[in-house]
Nucleic acid binder design. Structure first.
Lengths: 345, 345
DNA sequence: TTGTAAGCGTTATCAT
DNA sequence: ATGATAACGCTTACAA
């Protein structure tokens, strides 16, 4: 036995089933079965094989078994950016679940570009990923690249940045309800002149959060004023620009609900730069719970989303779908909650 | 021809060389060669094959060619965390280069745990990655798992969190010089009572940044005071704790050089909470250029590292090593530079 | 219970 | 210049 180990060691590379088979005087198929705990292999030989495999640190080549089984044990992920707290948390969740399940994760960055998203989508499908998780780029306004995914029968899950234009499962948070709650909270604080820094046009998130804002105003019989709604993208600069523009209005807002924290922070920076006191003259609330919100002063009220869980659920779901012959698209909505901090007190 | 396309379409799956060969009335090997631009295939047939492949959107199965060529076209990456600005930028750099070169990137998170780092290292090697990029976890104090990597002849590059205990290439920034410069700058600002929030013990980064601090003091004939040096980990909490402890001293510091921005921000928060004015009573400088530094007030002076380039260089280097029969370990040091902001003015 | 052999989709070697 | 064939390392009928 030990001589055999020695001979194997000599190879200096990864062992193969063939090596083990030779060493143990068994056929490759028996070894293969033993390692997979196949029922009809003798308990004794099974033990022997498994023990030996352990001893020599055998690991079967996933490439080879992937080829044979038409599976790669990898899932693809496309996010608009990676140096972004929200998405990096989502990725963390995906990664954690996938890793536990023995899946590798191929992470790609679309850089908020439709063109890159299309190229990457193809690339990942061509890399034969077993499933695909995507948060759409801000530019994405047509979706043929996902038809390709569906044609190749690769389960597809959209996360957070979703659309109903693509047949796919989705993982989102309750954007509408959370926005409604946030705005209603501002109303309860006594504000009636409430502005909204909206997200990029055409985005589902933008629409849902805007609708929450509108409906909260409506419920409390507050007139909707077009000039209090401006689209600022998801960026700090966008938020800053919107705030600036609101400040030129005759009737200025007393409170702002922003589509996300970066935009809210941009707005705060503008107001601070012109000496508007937050929250005394201006209440601000964001969305996302970006850690910067606890650094900026006053600390930013926000809506806390379960980012890690969004990623984890998405991974869980895609793994299920990978292992099912037939599946239907699921639409999971995870709860988020209001975190009240100094910027609205 | 179009009938053939139709027949292929019927498959509803990815085409194979065999499909193309049949459709074109050629042998599989000719098709394979044509697609790889092999010199000894007729220009005409080459054109024909490539055009047809394009038309039917053929993509060769990387799994199969990986099996045959003993390559996966994937590189593994292990970082301590992913929801971290520094590492997510590094990953971005890696990803960008790797993607251009047609490589996939398997990103794993050690969660600052040695045990996980060991497990992941094995996992990635067993997944047959062609190369491995690692930023060591804070716990990592022995290195046998990397012997395994070297035994399997997988090129290994350490990034930022490096050690000289492992035979591997490294990508770092000029920690020593940058720290020296930062501390010297504080001295030029007129400070002599300068404290250092050091990194976790045992880390190369900690040692280099500490040494820069010490040597700058020494150069300017400032006595080194043990009580002005405290190890605070890489965290905000650690920085906060160190600041608190410094503030109990009889002779309090007038300036602090922190091992990174998170620690510096923790310190700032402590000082703000006890009403110490920054920078009037206390100058603070960090390391990393975390975007939070431009949100916190006063804005944090820091050392800007080329994070994206670190990742890109690492990827570049590992790709070179993958494609060389023999290679020697390289040790790249990229420059970083001081960014002076309000916290030290 | 175990072994033989075919096959997954490529690439590389050897003929032709 | 092209084709037949074996091989990469594994899984899975099918035989024994």
């Amino acid at each position: 036995m030990y001589l055999l180990i020695f001979i194997l060691e000599m190879k200096g590379e990864q062992y193969t089933l063939k090596d083990l088979a030779k060493a143990l005087n068994l056929s490759v198929s028996t070894v293969s079965r033993a390692l997979r705990n196949h029922p009809d292999v003798n308990e004794a030989t099974k033990k022997k094989v498994q023990q030996f495999a352990e001893e020599v640190e055998f690991q079967k080549n996933p490439i080879a078994s992937g080829l044979r089984k038409h599976k790669t044990n990898a899932i693809g992920v496309i996010v608009p950016e990676i140096a972004n707290y929200f998405f990096s948390q989502v990725i963390d969740g995906i990664q954690t679940i996938a890793y536990q399940a023995g899946y590798n994760v191929l992470i790609c960055v679309s850089d908020e570009s439709l063109e890159k998203e299309q190229a990457i989508t193809k690339h990942l499908v061509n890399s034969r990923v077993d499933g695909l998780l995507v948060a759409l780029s801000v530019e994405t306004n047509h979706y043929e690249h996902f038809d390709f995914v569906n044609r190749k029968n690769v389960p597809l899950i959209l996360i957070d940045r979703v659309t109903d234009q693509v047949p796919a499962s989705t993982i989102t948070t309750n954007n509408y309800e959370a926005s409604f709650e946030a705005v209603e909270y501002l109303i309860h604080q006594g504000h009636r002149q409430i502005a909204h820094i909206a997200g990029p046009k055409g985005q589902t998130i933008t629409r849902q959060r805007l609708q929450g804002y509108l409906d909260a105003l409506k419920k409390h019989a507050i007139d909707i004023q077009e000039q209090l709604i401006e689209s600022g993208g998801y960026t700090q600069e966008g938020g800053e620009a919107c705030a600036k523009s609101f400040w030129t209005l005759g009737e200025k807002p007393e409170a702002i609900f922003a589509v996300n924290d970066r935009a809210a922070i941009g707005a705060m920076r503008f107001f601070k730069s012109v000496g508007v006191a937050i929250p005394d003259q201006m209440s601000i609330i964001g969305f996302n719970n970006n850690p910067m919100g606890e650094i900026i002063e006053p600390n930013l009220s926000t809506i806390v989303q379960p980012q890690f869980e969004m990623g984890a659920s998405a991974a869980q779901l895609v793994l299920e779908q990978i292992n099912q012959e037939e599946y239907t698209h699921q639409h999971l909505t995870l709860p988020s909650k209001l975190a009240i901090r100094k910027s609205t007190l």
